[in-house]
Amino acid sequence: MFISLNGQFLKKDEAMISPFDHGFLYGMGLFETFRVYEGHPFLLDDHLQRLNQGLEVININYRFQREETNQHLQELLKLNGLTNAYLRLNVSAGIGDIGLQVMPFNEPNILYFPKPLPQAGELVEKKAVILEQKRNSPEGNERLKSHHFMNNILAKREIGNRPDIEGIFLNEEGYVAEGIVSNIFWVKGKVLYTPSVQTGILNGITRQFVIELAKNKNLGVEEGHYPTEHAFEAEEMFVTNSIQEIVPITTFEGYQLPGKQGQVVQQLHHEYRHYCKHLWSRHFLGSE
């Protein structure tokens, strides 16, 4: 497998960065993960927009553009013989002296990591359980998709490696927050509910896309602070991320749910399939 490091294609065991990189020393780095469908990087514009906003926050002087980024990742996909893939784009702050740096980072390390994925298929169900581990508060005003992943790792240890379970965080105030690697949604009546970004969650790209999909289909959407009792009344529930897409939930803390038989889940999944091979941004929904 080949990866890309600062524009060079290297075998994965040949790639190296300095131990003085502040991404390693102090966690000063961001990443995006997205899925490539038949060669198309789904919602790439949205991923790059979030990445660029985060880079500004942590003072890394680099910005990504679609054309250049897509050209580079297409070369990487071709080199690895991939058309359906997981792609992680990572930006690490770069070399600096030991000590907390307040000046901008002007020479970050930029890495692309691909992994093969099968063609997208049918819905895959999971069970959801509430974690003992609480969702930590964001380091700044809003949670970034950063190298700071200890909270997620501790939560993952709590549930183990079972692929059919997703752990659901409550935040420090006891409100439903998000999954270990996902955002959470549930349906009551004709309304789709999801925790607000103000609960401390990551504003997932697939989360944002699903919200726009639902609105486009005249489904009510509410974002707020919800206790677990509100979620226990759900008629349907699912979690989302850019690699696993929409994942229906069959049980939530023992409460039975319809999983992939849910009407809203089926409708959103159908729409997801329609757009995943050509859409660059959720902002283009409805423009076709």
Rank of each mutant, 00 (worst) to 15 (best):
M1P: 05
I17E: 09
I17T: 07
P19Q: 08
D21C: 11
G23S: 05
G27F: 06
M28N: 13
T33A: 07
G39H: 07
G39D: 06
L43T: 02
Q49H: 09
R50D: 02
N70D: 14
H72R: 14
H72Q: 14
L77D: 08
N80K: 03
N90V: 07
V91P: 03
G94F: 07
L100C: 00
F105K: 04
L117P: 06
Q119W: 08
A120M: 12
L123H: 11
A128L: 15
P138W: 00
R143C: 13
L144W: 08
H148Q: 14
F149S: 15
N151F: 05
P163S: 15
G167M: 06
F185N: 02
G189I: 02
Y193F: 10
Q198G: 08
G200T: 08
I201N: 00
L202S: 05
I205K: 09
A214R: 01
N216S: 15
N216I: 09
N218E: 13
H225L: 14
H225D: 11
F232S: 11
E233K: 14
E236V: 01
V239R: 02
N241D: 00
E245M: 06
E245R: 10
P248F: 12
T250W: 05
P258L: 01
V264C: 07
L268E: 00
H269G: 03
R273I: 11
Y275K: 02
C276K: 14
C276V: 11
